[in-house]
Write a protein that binds this DNA or RNA. Structure first.
Lengths: 158, 158
DNA sequence: TATTGTTATACTCTATAACTATA
DNA sequence: TATAGTTATAGAGTATAACAATA
């Protein structure tokens, strides 16, 4: 455990360098499946069909950004986008069978990479890090106003 | 603590969304001091004078990227860049007095933001998160060059 | 020949604003 | 009028490759 008189400063420093970790993980992604695309697939796979605004909230980005990433996945046949029968303004996204397969493949590669690189980590630490990051995102993220407070409690709703 | 059968999957998902946290923190940064600039100042403030290659390594980016960010800080008088007397190819960077002041101001803003938003976090959790992120970066970053060939052999059909 | 650093180029990701369509 | 979504544009951040200077 790092010993520092200012844990906030240390946290800020580590957050600044976490981008290198994301890029390293993305190296093993399938072609045309960038990190943002993988996030779309992962969220649709875990939470099921949802609207654009909900997806943008979960991604922590503006809806215009989520829209672009979804179009990318729709163009490649990984996501199906249909009008919401209950609201003519909204659209509903869900994974296609092709998208399910790509998600499974991507998940397998990431899990293998993490399992190999973090082979000396106790599984408890892996889960603890994921949990702390989830809480950090909720407590610091802009989207907390729109998110269901229950997301604070459970990070694995499905 | 999140309970999940696959903590690696959960960690991958949280890493994908950590960008929103970084952007939220950056909102309170001084003008012309983007996250990458703040990282340069923080590293030079913590580790003192260093060469470009060392800074790039600590930032987890290519040296060409570090070079651009340093030029940005030099142009604004926050960093002094001089030839290395021991190696004509290298250059040494260190904070100027102006850079020290900007670093102190940025650090103060980040610490205030974190302290305010994470006021219900035990300090132990803040330090633990920073520590886990540091270990993640070490164990995941730059490791491909040091891979044991036997790992590749085991996953490659003969 | 190898290493250190810079610059040119292209790509990913993002937010803002303007726009369409519907509630 | 307000909301859901799309598109155009601009900006930050990054890697690769080509380059110059030095070891």
């Amino acid at each position: 455990m790092a010993q520092t008189e200012d844990p906030y400063r240390e946290l800020a420093r580590q957050l600044g360098s976490v981008g290198a970790v994301r890029r390293e993980l993305a190296r093993s992604f399938p072609h045309d499946c960038q990190p943002a695309t993988a996030i779309v697939l992962m969220l649709l796979g875990r939470r099921g069909e949802m609207r654009m605004s909900e997806l943008a909230d979960l991604m922590g980005v503006d809806m215009s950004v989520a829209s672009r990433h979804v179009t990318h996945t729709v163009d490649r046949g990984w996501v199906d986008r249909r009008p919401d029968p209950l609201d003519g303004r909204a659209r509903l996204m869900r994974l296609t069978e092709s998208g399910e397969r790509l998600l499974a493949e991507t998940h397998e590669r990431v899990a293998q990479t993490l399992a190999r690189r973090l082979d000396d980590w106790p599984l408890e630490d892996v889960a603890r890090l994921a949990d702390l990051l989830a809480r950090l995102r909720v407590d610091l993220g802009e989207c907390e106003r729109h998110l269901d407070p229950r997301h604070l409690r459970s990070t694995t709703p499905l």
